[in-house]
Design a protein around this nucleic acid. Sequence first.
DNA 1: GTCTATAGGTTGATAGAC
DNA 2: GTCTATCAACCTATAGAC
Lengths: 210, 210
Amino acid sequence: MTEKPDTKWRILDAAEKLFGLKGFEATSLRDITAEAQVNLAAVNYHFQSKDSLIDAVIARIIQPVNKRRLEKLDAAGPNPALEEILAAFLGPVLELDLANVAPLMGRLMSEPNLFIERFFKTHLAPVSQRFQEEIHKALPDLPRAEIAWRMHFVAGIMAHHARWSQVLPVTSGGLCDNSDPQAVIERIVAFSAAGFRAPVREPAVMTGKG
Amino acid sequence: MTEKPDTKWRILDAAEKLFGLKGFEATSLRDITAEAQVNLAAVNYHFQSKDSLIDAVIARIIQPVNKRRLEKLDAAGPNPALEEILAAFLGPVLELDLANVAPLMGRLMSEPNLFIERFFKTHLAPVSQRFQEEIHKALPDLPRAEIAWRMHFVAGIMAHHARWSQVLPVTSGGLCDNSDPQAVIERIVAFSAAGFRAPVREPAVMTGKG
DNA sequence: GTCTATAGGTTGATAGAC
DNA sequence: GTCTATCAACCTATAGAC
């Protein structure tokens, strides 16, 4: 019956913000408890260790993202267009809060060592497979390997944008305005859909004998 | 007259490898001196601090990469095709040693805080501007802002691939074979060129009065 | 559940002998 | 230039009072 933002949630919120801002290793539990205005020992009481806290922070972000991805995909009907598939994959990430959540998501996607060990099989692999199946239905002539490559490219755009979105207006010299998430999604969908429809280059034939 | 791999170079090589593998914060000077088989105090003798060592490691990678980018661009003649421009931008990064150098390059590109403070103005901004000019000549109808956005997307693909290349054969379930760097460059160039040529969506007109 | 106090270890950096 | 030894600061984690 009490309000939600108790100690445990305050720690998760503070950890999410600081992990995204400075990274997992560079953020100490003291940084987190200072930001959350709770006692240092509370971290080890509510979570068992820093590693478990990292797991909890990430799970709290990834699970609803993947849930919404699949909901959007289902909502697009039995034979969604390529653009609908890409928007379902990208939207839930690019709609995350740019200040706190998106940087952490981008950081996580650029740390394959951490990601693979703890989240790849449980969180990413099933969703990735489902999306690759849908793209295969939308582009039946595109080889499976090419679908995997191009999903890898789309994930790269998404991760990089999540990581740079906060500073992009500066680094682009004001050219890139990302204040409207929907406009960003449309841009990335248009770019990625065109890339997915690019002709597949035949592998070069070696001149040596077989 | 002595051989090149003296203490200073051994430290740079070891730091490059470990920074890429574990990250800047997670790698201690003791990790580096153990890998390089030199004394701990040698780091602070040859470089003044860990931060200066980070600068030196990164400068040693970025400078030749940007030099080769511009050489490739110049070699493509006065009016290079879009594909030639993209290959000049991507090639020198994607041809880096996948085991040691590429992971560090990918990590650097996914750490905007570090990157912007120390390398953006000196290393990235001039090269980026030159490439955007060339793309403007190749695609004169594409708005400047859209060029900036799409270069941002291409950089994302590049950074993500540099970061994941080592594990990609596993995470793709064997679908993505990246043993041939030239084939990877061709794939990314084809995808990105098609994305660059995608039609620009007109901004949606609001239904409210002006 | 929340706090203080502290154990036990690692870090970056330096002083000073050789 | 290279080494040993060491410092002060920081870290995660826990024990135990309340």
